[in-house]
Design a binder for these strands. Structure first.
Lengths: 146, 146
DNA sequence: TCCTTATTGATACCATGTCTCAATAAGGAT
DNA sequence: ATCCTTATTGAGACATGGTATCAATAAGGA
């Protein structure tokens, strides 16, 4: 389960286009979130940021998390480590798998979810505008090394 | 979307069998959770409990929520109102739909989810032991009244 | 280089949830 | 019914996660 490579440049560009100044703290935080294989909480990101930039403020990190989430660049992970950890969003892939052994996140093709939603709309009569799906278990690597 | 009727007696029995004393506070809280059509937070349940039992302690409510969740009688709702609201668990039905207009919860047949999980296991090589799916949108009722 | 303004960091604050411990109440034994 | 033992309770202190405020700072255009 190798880490997906997110291009930090794309995130910079997205922030830039949204009219935000892209400062050095923001670059630091972008790198932290974009390159982590594991879901990160704001506190964890704060710790990481202070390694290279000790004066980094807590509020700044929370503000940045909010900004990245609202731009859809990171998304919240629900369950098993609380509901306040974040992973990078991969636009073309939606379903999230979290390994309960090693903690790493993997992304799965979302087509089955799209089908499920379509089917549920048809049978329930509800209009479904958003969904949240996460899968948990043992990843292929951890099963081998068990 | 009529409220599902949960039998409070079953919950009493489940607590009883697990070796807990079923006290009057617990009965109050069971009724509150079992009969609410809407996801409830611990604080909301606390407010409700104090209507009929003003001395009810906050910690007691949190303890009860934990107990009910660990027994699988209630489950956490993730998203759109935070991640700290709870709904009764319906054993035979798993997929949860939350209406973003009226806030009510509906339960959908889980077979499509079972199929999705099977398919994801086959294609990813991960062993999936648990899942979290929630659907959001406008329920059939709210669409009509719009 | 100066000026304007968004961003920052420190701190105070708030909300949510947990821990402690003396007081209470269940429920079995008598 | 009464006593005894012990789980449960309630009050409040505490911890954690997250937000609001505001003076100081730093971007970036003129």
């Amino acid at each position: 389960m190798p880490g997906k490579m997110i291009n930090s440049e794309d995130w910079r560009a997205a922030l830039d286009e949204s009219g935000f100044r892209v400062t050095t703290v923001q670059e630091t935080l972008i790198d932290i979130f974009a390159h982590s294989e594991y879901p990160l909480s704001a506190e964890q990101a704060w710790d990481a940021a202070r390694q290279s930039r000790p004066k980094t403020g807590r509020a700044t990190v929370y503000r940045m998390v909010e900004k990245l989430e609202s731009l859809g660049l990171i998304r919240r992970v629900h369950g098993y480590q609380g509901c306040s950890h974040f992973v990078p969003t991969l636009p073309e892939l939606m379903m999230l798998f979290i390994c309960l052994d090693c903690g790493r996140a993997d992304y799965l093709d979302s087509q089955p979810l799209d089908d499920l939603i379509q089917h549920s709309e048809d049978t329930s009569g509800h209009h479904i505008t958003d969904s949240r799906l996460q899968l948990f278990g043992a990843c292929a690597d951890c099963q081998q090394n068990a």
